[in-house]
Structure formats: structure tokens, C-alpha cells
Design a protein around this nucleic acid. Structure first.
Lengths: 132, 132
DNA sequence: CTTGACCTTCCAACGATGGGAAGGTGTATC
DNA sequence: GATACACCTTCCCATCGTTGGAAGGTCAAG
């Protein structure tokens, strides 16, 4: 299977497949006589793994850990759980921060008449000399 | 006022102040005979504006728009409101996506015993051949 | 044989920030 | 005055994940 087909099958772009290989996340693909990369079902499965993990917001380094645990059929599930929980915690912190931002913005937008007059609480607040 | 002092006063690092100048977000600062940049209260105020907007998650390009509106005392508040609302919408979309991720992860973590046995629903799910 | 779709490698960019080198300047202390 | 140290200047590089493109090789259909 060529890289393009593998990309379609796995949902990971050809560009990224090469990139993942370059940074050592994937083992170098087998090559044909063309020097074209050659992929099989196993590779596609692994790519799909990476794709799903990326879509869940795992970083490349987190995936590097996960994929090694995945390849090792005997790993204790404790470790996998630890990685997932750490990522979950990260995620929840970031969500809370973004919610705080959104709340502030909502308040500002609600206070702004949004008409043709120049008075605008949004800019007043952004420009306020107050802390942080 | 030197750039370092302006950085402390505004909460924007000296590195970033130079960067904002380089990309044209800020007008080139006045220079002394030293060729040191020289800042006044107005500049600090503007920097504080940028800092607050960054902390609210506005992108540089959004800030470029906002700061022009801010400098223009006669701008209609409608435009400011539009920028803020667009950003708010973005933010809320991203929050929803991250919440979906977190929910999926929570389910996976809850299903995983996290003991020394290799069975792990998290990896099973990541590796599953199912869609997307 | 030509055309177009694919593959290869390499280089650069994004957005926002930080690190650091190499060199000039300001000020305080000995 | 000399020395030390803190600050300033410009410049380049790294991050992280991804995308774009150039320049060139290969394959298959018309």
C-alpha cells in the first residue's frame, strides 16, 4: 500500500506519516524497489491509533509513551491509566481557563451596546489600568 | 523608561515588546541617544491593553483590529462588539470540543481497572478500527 | 510518447514565546 | 580609572504540530 492509500485508510495525512517517521514515532516504513514506502494493515492500524490519540488531544510525547505501551502486550494497565489521567487533568485545567475567559468576554459583550456610538465597555476594560 | 521597566509595568516581557514592534503591532518606540528604546505612560497603557487581550485569548490579528479600534476614539462600539463576539464564539466551540474529549477520556479511564494486568480499555479504544 | 497522478527529499512557514550569543552602555563600588 | 554587574541592542535558533511548495523520480492510462 502506498503512503497516499495508507493516509486515506488511516485518516492521517501523508505529510504527517512521513513526519511521524522522521521524529521516530513510527518505525521506518518498508520500501519497495521504487523507494516508495510500503504499508500494510498493521501500519494502518498503528496510524489510526496515533490519529485517534491526536484527536483526543494527546501530545506527540504522550503518544510516544502510549504507543510503546500499546505495542507491549504485557504492560500493566496502570501505566496507561496514569498517562490518560494526567492528560485528562491537563485538559480540564485548560477547559477551566478557557471558561473563565469566555465568562469575562460574555460579561463585556453583554455590557456593550454595540451601536454606532464610540463608548465601549470592552475596550474600556481591555485598556483599564487594573491588575493582571 | 527602559524596555525592562516597561515590561514590568505592563506585564508584557521585553522579548514580546520587541516582537510586537517587529511585526508592526506597535509603532516603533522612540529611541534615546543610546539607541535604547524609550517608553512612556501611554506606551505602557497600550502594552497593558495587549497583555490583557492576549490573556483573554485574542490572537495577534484580532488584537491588531482591536487596537486600531481602541486608538480611534470615534469608532462605533458595534465593530468592537463584533470582534469580541466572534472570538467568544471561537472560544466556546473550542471549549465544547475539549469537553467532548474530556468526556471520552473520563469514560475510558473509568473503564480501566488500572492494575498490573495488561487488559486496558483505553488502548483497546485507541487502537480500535472504528471510524474517524 | 505524453499527460497526470503519485512518490521522493528538502526547505520554509505559521503563532507566540523563550533562550542565548555577541557586543554596546549605565552605574555602583573599590 | 578599573572592575563588576545589570541592562540594552540585534540576530539566530528552538519549540509544537502541521501545511505548503519546489525539484525531481516513477507509474499507469490514453
Amino acid at each position: 500500500m502506498n503512503i497516499g492509500t495508507a493516509a486515506i485508510e488511516s485518516g492521517v495525512s501523508a505529510k504527517m506519516i512521513r513526519h511521524y517517521e522522521a521524529i521516530g514515532l513510527l518505525a521506518p516504513a518498508a520500501r519497495r524497489e521504487n523507494s516508495y514506502r510500503d504499508y500494510g494493515a498493521r501500519d494502518v492500524h498503528e496510524l489510526r491509533f496515533i490519529g485517534r490519540a491526536r484527536r483526543l488531544g494527546f501530545s506527540i510525547e504522550e503518544i510516544r509513551v502510549l504507543i510503546n505501551l500499546w505495542r507491549d502486550g504485557k504492560r500493566p494497565s496502570r501505566e496507561v491509566r496514569r498517562v490518560a489521567m494526567a492528560h485528562l487533568q491537563d485538559l480540564e485545567t485548560r477547559i477551566a481557563e478557557m471558561q473563565a475567559m469566555a465568562q469575562t468576554l460574555q460579561k463585556l459583550v453583554a455590557d456593550c451596546r454595540g451601536d454606532s456610538r464610540p463608548d465601549c465597555p470592552i475596550l474600556d476594560d481591555l485598556g483599564s489600568s487594573c491588575c493582571t
